[in-house]
């Protein structure tokens, strides 16, 4: 029995109990260190992106963004995200259902495998597809004979993106669905619902905020991926350049203003992602469980 009296201390702690806080000086020092560190490493890079993007005025900015190559890069990035995110959502839901709702041998191992892409360098994520589909690759000759183009084209970019964003939705949903247990679904089944109905009317509403959270992170990474996509894209301007790749090309051509203009769009995407993510955590903290980050 927890005496509620004890609980009532919590909100007051901060201001008093000398046992659990540092001296005023130590607090000040730690705060200054934190602000300086976050300021230099996080805030300044963000500011410089927008500062450089508008360095030559609004007109140059809009002009840079209306370049045909830039526009095609934006279109390609959206297309790639529009394909890979739904694919990984489907996988994430399916894997979470199998892992969270059932007990079977090798479950822990399967869960580890799902996290695998997080521990693989993005460059290697791209490389594996080059080894598979490239001219000297395992399937290269066969693909060429049948006129199928994967590498240095949209399918390759999608594959590499799917690889690096593979775990996002699944690792968000699995702990959440495990925590919620099977009770609701069993109740729905006992009331006559079939599996799809139980999923649609019971499971999905239960995990919708967690799912949205996963989609958000998955999408941010899908649109921003650089290393893996760089290896498989072939850097063909106007054709296989995504926005991050286009940033690189412009930057290497000493067209910094244009590079930062495109970068500012991606930084804007990151900021929107962070804001939505924070709002979700604040409002639905309990419903998206304790899994944060990545």
């Amino acid at each position: 029995m927890a005496d509620p009296e004890i609980k009532s201390y919590a909100p007051h702690h901060e201001s008093q109990s000398p046992a659990v806080t540092e001296s005023r000086t130590a607090r000040t020092v730690l705060m200054i260190v934190t602000f300086a560190f976050l300021g230099i490493f996080l805030l300044l890079p963000l500011i410089i992106v927008f500062k450089e993007a508008f360095a030559k005025g609004i007109e140059a900015y809009t002009q840079a963004l209306s370049e045909p190559d830039t526009r095609s890069a934006i279109r390609l990035t959206l297309l790639v995200a529009a394909i890979s995110v739904p694919l990984n959502v489907t996988f994430g839901i399916s894997a979470a259902w199998a892992i969270a709702k059932f007990e079977f041998k090798g479950k822990a191992f399967l869960t580890t495998l799902i996290d695998l892409p997080f521990s693989v360098s993005p460059v290697i994520s791209g490389l594996v597809y080059v080894l598979l589909f490239g001219a000297q690759g395992l399937l290269g000759a066969w693909l060429k004979a049948h006129g199928i183009v994967i590498l240095f084209a949209v399918p390759g970019i999608v594959l590499a993106t799917v690889f690096v964003t593979f775990p996002f939705v699944a690792r968000e949903l699995i702990p959440l669905m495990q925590e919620q247990g099977n009770g609701d679904e069993e109740a729905a089944l006992s009331l006559g619902a079939n599996g799809w109905q139980a999923f649609w009317y019971v499971t999905l509403p239960n995990v919708k905020w967690g799912l949205l959270y996963g989609v958000l992170l998955c999408n941010a990474r899908a649109m921003g991926e650089f290393g893996a996509v760089s290896v498989v894209s072939g850097h063909i301007r106007g054709l296989t350049n995504t926005m991050p790749l286009h940033v690189e090309i412009l930057y290497n051509e000493y067209n910094a203003a244009a590079a930062f203009a495109v970068a500012s769009l991606l930084a804007g995407l990151a900021l929107v992602t962070l804001v939505l993510k924070t709002l979700l955590e604040m409002r639905y903290g309990a419903e998206i469980a304790a899994t944060r980050g990545h």
Binding site: F226, P244, V247, A267, L269, A270, K277
Partner: peptide
């Protein structure tokens, strides 16, 4: 703190 997760690495690189 989550900015590095969300900001595309190429953007972080040039910044």
């Amino acid at each position: 703190v989550d900015l590095p997760f969300a900001l595309p690495t190429a953007v972080a690189g040039i910044a």
